[in-house]
């Protein structure tokens, strides 16, 4: 459905010295700098698949989505979305997909959301019957039936985002790009939007690419994740398998009755934290039994827990590593 190969996007920008002198100098000579927002990104998405695009701020997630929806031209590389080259901006292609950006809105601020929906109906040339069906189904599912006639500016952030999503789905796109759809929302609204996306996808088998800051969005919705950092793909696979890739480690926390001597812990593994009577160690999974039995015999252990490394931390490791 979506093939991305060696996609690269550079942005040019100029430095400017401060002050009037800098401004004058700027008139004659500007130093051109190039920032590679997206560097040689490749991945594939199957029909009906949902993938998460994860990465820190400025990693190139949004830029990638913008190229896939034809908003931006790439500097090099290629992409096909359902057979179309997005930046040719064919109308036929535009009817196939939709993009929702958490920080941009398409709804008319001073009008009720249903007016903006009607505008989209006319833009996408949808028959009256189909339009009515879509609105009633989706407004039910999103629980916004009573809000359709309320001006957008009077809606809460969460309600507005639901309306944005509804507006994007009026033409029943086969492909959906969601860029930070839960940004700035409270936990309950986030949860509601996740639930909606899950049930909508189950029913309509829409291909979805989702970017988010919130691990929870990705964890719950996306079996597969592509992690981007500094414009490059650093990981492509399931979130749960990530730990294995990172060296397959376990985390061991012990609590003792007497303060622990740091030197006696060092041979067992990496010491993450040591605070008087409590210490956390990271050790390889296959050493687990051996290490724990030796620790138990060596130290006056009161409490003993073994956990997986949290996904957030594994991801953060990916961010730092490259």
């Amino acid at each position: 459905m979506i093939q991305v190969e060696h996609l690269t996007r550079n942005f040019e920008y100029y430095t400017k010295a401060t002050g009037l002198k800098g401004s004058v100098k700027n008139l004659f000579h500007r130093e051109k700098l190039i920032k590679e927002a997206v560097k040689d990104v490749s991945f594939c998405v199957e029909k009906g698949e949902i993938i998460g695009l994860l990465g820190p701020n400025g990693a190139g997630k949004t830029t990638t989505l913008k190229m896939l929806s034809g908003i931006l031209f790439p500097s090099s590389g290629s992409a096909r979305v359902d057979g179309f080259i997005p930046w040719e901006r064919k109308d036929e292609f535009k009817r196939k997909f939709s993009i929702v950006m958490g920080q941009k809105n398409q709804l008319w601020w001073d009008l009720p959301a249903c007016d903006s929906f009607y505008l989209n109906k006319c833009i996408f040339d949808i028959s009256d019957g189909e339009y009515r069906r879509t609105i009633s189904e989706l407004s039910e599912l999103l629980d916004v039936k009573d809000l359709l006639n309320v001006q957008v500016r009077r809606l809460s952030l969460g309600e507005r985002m639901k309306m944005e999503i509804l507006a994007a789905l009026i033409h029943r796109p086969e492909i959906l790009f969601l860029d930070e759809p839960t940004i700035g929302l409270d936990l309950i609204s986030q949860q509601k939007i996740r639930e909606f996306l899950r049930s909508y996808r189950e029913e309509h088998h829409t291909t979805i690419i989702l970017t988010s800051h919130y691990m929870k969005d990705i964890e719950e919705l996306c079996p597969r994740t592509v992690i981007i950092n500094h414009g490059q793909v650093v990981y492509d696979g399931g979130l749960l398998e990530m730990n294995r890739v990172m060296g397959d480690k376990k985390r061991l926390t012990i609590k003792t009755s007497a303060p622990i001597d740091p030197s006696c812990l060092a041979p067992f593994g990496t010491v993450c934290s040591l605070n008087g009577c409590q210490a956390t160690l990271e050790i390889a999974r296959n050493n687990l039994t051996q290490v724990s039995s030796r620790l138990l015999s060596l130290l006056p252990v009161e409490d003993f827990t073994v956990t997986d490394i949290p996904i957030e931390e594994s991801v953060a490791l990916f961010y730092q590593n490259r």
Binding site: K66, S69, G70, I71, R89, D91, E92, K94, R95, F97, S98, I99, M101, K104, N105, Q106, I123, F124
Partner: peptide, 12 residues
Amino acid sequence: EGSLDMLIVKPV
């Protein structure tokens, strides 16, 4: 402000 983005993707 980049609000053009949401217009470029419309088939009009």
